[in-house]
Amino acid sequence: MKKLILIATLAMLCVNAHSQSRTVVYGILEDGVDFNSNVQGSHLVQLLSGVTAASKWGIRGTEDMGGGLTTIFQIAGTFDLNSGALFGNRIFSSNDFVGLRSNRLGTLTLGRQWDAVVDYIGPFTLNGNVGGAYLAHPNDIDNTDQGFHTSNAIKYSSPMIAGFTFEGLYAFGNTPGQFSQNASFSAGISYAFESFSAGIAYLRVNSPETATQGYQSGGGYTNAIYGSYLSAARAQNIFGVGASYKPFSMLTLLADFTNTTFQQGSAGHDATFQNYELSALVMPAPDITIGAGYTLTKGRDHATDASPTYDQYNLTAEYALSKRTSLYVIGAFQRARGDAPVAQIAVFNPSSNQKQAVGRVGIRSLF
């Protein structure tokens, strides 16, 4: 009841806000039906919410302070559309921050936020544009699909300067006597000119098992790809580069590379995974978007010299019924090889063999 009263109060504040505050309620509703060929040896048919985008509601706003300075804020919560349950049992589980934005100096925000890998590498992945979680690198090993937020963070984002933007983020661990435990640091830079854009970013998360709050199995599944490495790791380091090129209006080409290291994640030795992705977006009509891509993931356990490898092929198509509502279909196929015993498309439990395929039909509406 207290949660409902809080939500109702916030909504009333938005309705009654002065016009200069520009406060709005917004959100996403997303749902669909999945078919998975092999989940621990069995077929799976399910109704699942929040795949191409998390179902959420939020409040955001600005206040003009004069002289090119603006106060900004945002709070947002994600939830399961089918059960009504809050994600992570939090009212606000998404980006929640407050800060100042200057036209000349940039933006400084404090709160729960995305890191530089999400901001500067995610836009060059297929799942960062269409399709969402099922098209991510295996179990979103590099956070390019927004697998976790960074809590307790101070973030600076620059204005655009000659086509360049950059950002830096530091998240406090908030652990008495141990300043670096659970702390995170990220930085990135991007460049855009006409039809070309590119980005580079780095993220380090100390004590990732606790800092990311169970990220390796946060969706209720068992992570067979890197869960044991993450839980044992002293730190998780992610480096990524990405680029896009639009040769003509209906076609966008995307490419990205990421390297994720679980420091001391395997018997005191490192475990590393590299993702190589090529993809394309085609818009044959203004209301139709087709995406296709391939990701090669190569891992190495430095304690055992095991080399798991994964190939994933992705295809999706969206049809916009309006500016707010879209219908879509998704198909993904993953093949494990080398020392990888099972396949596992993000969000699902692993297969019983080295192959797994998923198809989905769904709807997404914005407000």
Rank of each mutant, 00 (worst) to 15 (best):
D256H: 11
Y226H: 10
G219Y: 14
Y319S: 11
V361M: 02
T289M: 03
F348P: 00
A267P: 06
M65T: 06
A280L: 05
P284S: 04
T297H: 01
G106W: 00
I7R: 04
T304M: 08
L135W: 05
H149N: 12
G84L: 05
H43T: 07
N143S: 12
F273T: 02
R90H: 15
S93T: 14
T165R: 15
R324S: 03
I330Q: 06
F367A: 08
S158D: 03
P350K: 07
T62A: 15
L251E: 05
T175M: 05
V342A: 13
A11S: 13
F73N: 15
A187R: 06
I363G: 11
G265T: 06
Q216Y: 05
Y26I: 04
S326G: 00
G362R: 10
P176E: 04
S102W: 03
G220H: 10
N82G: 06
K323W: 02
V347K: 12
G338H: 04
G32H: 09
G58I: 06
G66L: 11
F172D: 04
T175K: 02
D311I: 05
S19C: 03
V117Q: 07
T125V: 08
V282F: 14
A285T: 08
A320C: 00
P159K: 04
D256A: 01
D270T: 09
G168M: 08
